[in-house]
């Protein structure tokens, strides 16, 4: 595994322990919807992601980008937002604990309310408690760039008009949490990215955890 790579002298954040301690696995399992074995399986995924560019036991933004886009170059607004929400401690890297906490929301058994909240925070770019028209515009421009599509300014404004007509029930020009919730309940497909079926039985996706397990049949 990656944690057994040769020491890297420029790697200052390399953790001393190569494996996640049993107590830590149990704690993370208790804090989440994952069993201890599932936390171990997710640790296999975490190790793979966290050593893809810098082998220091943390996921850097470039490593998340590499996994999602097969390139570590370029800017992507959505990647930035996802990274920021995973990075609870706001220290610029994702630790294993943060990885588990965030993936917990993507569990098929996580309540819809949690998923709705997560996406609201994701889209509330400036974190004002509202999704504003400028933010939606910025995100539409970002998705157009990502998919190399072009839209005229006029069409873009029409899409924004329609969106706010659909969602902004009190017509104050910004979307609050309640309006967002009401809209998403009517359009649950907007949450499709928020459920990862793999997480239902993660230990079969990453069976290699069996070789590294510290707990039998947890």
């Amino acid at each position: 595994g990656c944690f057994e790579c040769l020491p890297n002298p420029i790697n200052l954040r390399r953790p001393k322990k190569l494996r996640c301690a049993y107590k830590e696995l149990v704690r993370l399992s208790q804090e989440s919807r994952f069993s201890v074995n599932e936390v171990e399986a997710l640790y296999e995924l975490f190790k793979k992601l966290s050593c893809s560019i810098v082998d220091d036991g943390f996921i850097h933004k470039e490593e998340l980008q590499l996994a999602l886009f097969q390139t570590s170059q370029g800017e992507n607004l959505f990647l930035d937002r996802v990274f920021d929400l995973f990075d609870e401690k706001r220290n610029g890297v994702i630790a294993f604990e943060e990885f588990i906490h965030a993936l917990n929301v993507f569990h098929p058994c996580a309540p819809m309310e949690e998923k709705i909240d997560f996406v609201f925070k994701l889209y509330d770019l400036r974190q004002t408690g509202f999704i504003e028209r400028e933010e939606v515009k910025q995100m539409v421009i970002a998705i157009l760039m990502e998919s190399e599509m072009k839209l005229s300014d006029d069409l873009l404004e029409q899409i924004l008009d329609k969106t706010f007509a659909d969602v902004d029930a009190d017509r104050d020009g910004r979307i609050n949490k309640e309006e967002w919730k009401d809209f998403v309940i009517q359009h649950p497909s907007l949450l499709r990215n928020m459920t990862l079926p793999y997480l239902k039985d993660i230990s079969t996706v990453f069976p290699s955890f069996v070789f590294n397990t510290v707990v039998e049949n947890a």
């Binding site: 995924l45 992601l49 996994a67 999602l68 886009f69 992507n76 607004l77 959505f78 990647l79 937002r81 996802v82 993936l103 993507f106 994701l122 889209y123 939606v136 995100m139 539409v140 970002a142 998705i143 157009l144 990502e146 998919s147 839209l151 069409l155 029409q158 899409i159 924004l160 329609k162 969106t163 659909d166 969602v167 809209f183 359009h187 497909s189 907007l190 499709r192 990215n193 990862l196 793999y198 996706v205």
Partner: peptide
């Protein structure tokens, strides 16, 4: 027709939001 779409339908198609790709071997 793009104009018939709600912006959030477009946005939800972003690769950056599709974490399923993390599980690709």
């Amino acid at each position: 027709q793009p104009v018939a779409m709600n912006a959030f339908e477009l946005i939800s198609m972003s690769k950056g939001l599709n974490l399923g790709n993390l599980f690709d071997e």
